[in-house]
């Protein structure tokens, strides 16, 4: 077993462990912090894939924005659920069974495919290429632009919904 494999296994173990802590934790703030940890470990997984840029984006966008947003929401709504009451609903054991079945199914699906054994060797210059891909008309400029529409729409929608109640004007 090579060093990189061992590193991967450690990272994976940490990822999965922190993910489990996210879904099982009683204290929501802690869950949120475990989420940050998970996302961080995923960024580490990206580095094992030589995708440094993705790792950075993961940290900046996911941790820097989404996770923090969630943390805020948790803090804001903190007083409605205390830590002593159960954090799972009555069907949690069904959820276990179904998730396991789905997992087995996914593994079964993937197992039949002949996958490339090893990664391609040369991955230089990818950041420039990625930048180009996003602005070049014969690549992905359109998704890039539509994504901005999506983000603005989400922003407007989010603000509009989260506004405090007002009397009909």
């Amino acid at each position: 077993m090579s060093g990189s494999q061992i590193a991967f296994l450690i990272i994976s173990a940490l990822t999965v462990y922190s993910a489990l802590m996210v879904v099982t934790g009683r204290n929501l703030v802690r869950s949120a912090l475990w989420l940050v940890m998970t996302l961080f470990m995923v960024a580490a997984v990206f580095t094992t894939l030589d995708a440094g840029f993705m790792a950075v984006v993961q940290i900046v966008v996911y941790i820097g924005a989404i996770a923090i947003l969630i943390l805020f929401a948790v803090m804001l709504t903190r007083k409605v659920m205390n830590d002593t009451e159960p954090q799972t609903n009555d069907n949690w054991w069904m959820a276990v069974i179904v998730s396991v079945v789905i997992f087995v199914g996914m593994v079964f699906m993937v197992s039949g495919v002949s996958l490339p054994a090893r990664p391609a060797s040369d991955v230089s210059n990818q950041i420039v290429d990625l930048g180009n891909a996003f602005v070049s008309p014969n690549q992905f400029i359109l998704p890039f632009e539509v994504a901005s529409v999506l983000l603005i729409a989400a922003l407007i929608g989010g603000i509009a919904i989260a506004m405090p109640r007002e009397e009909e004007g």
Binding site: P143, V146, A147, V149, L150, A153, A154, I156, G157, G158, A160, I161, M163, R165, E166, E168
Partner: peptide, 20 residues
């Protein structure tokens, strides 16, 4: 995927738009 999500997320927002 992006188009589907643009539609969906906008629709989620629109559905919850009534403040009162």
């Amino acid at each position: 995927y992006l188009a589907i999500e643009t539609t969906s997320i906008s629709a989620y927002a629109l559905t919850g738009f009534l403040l009162n």
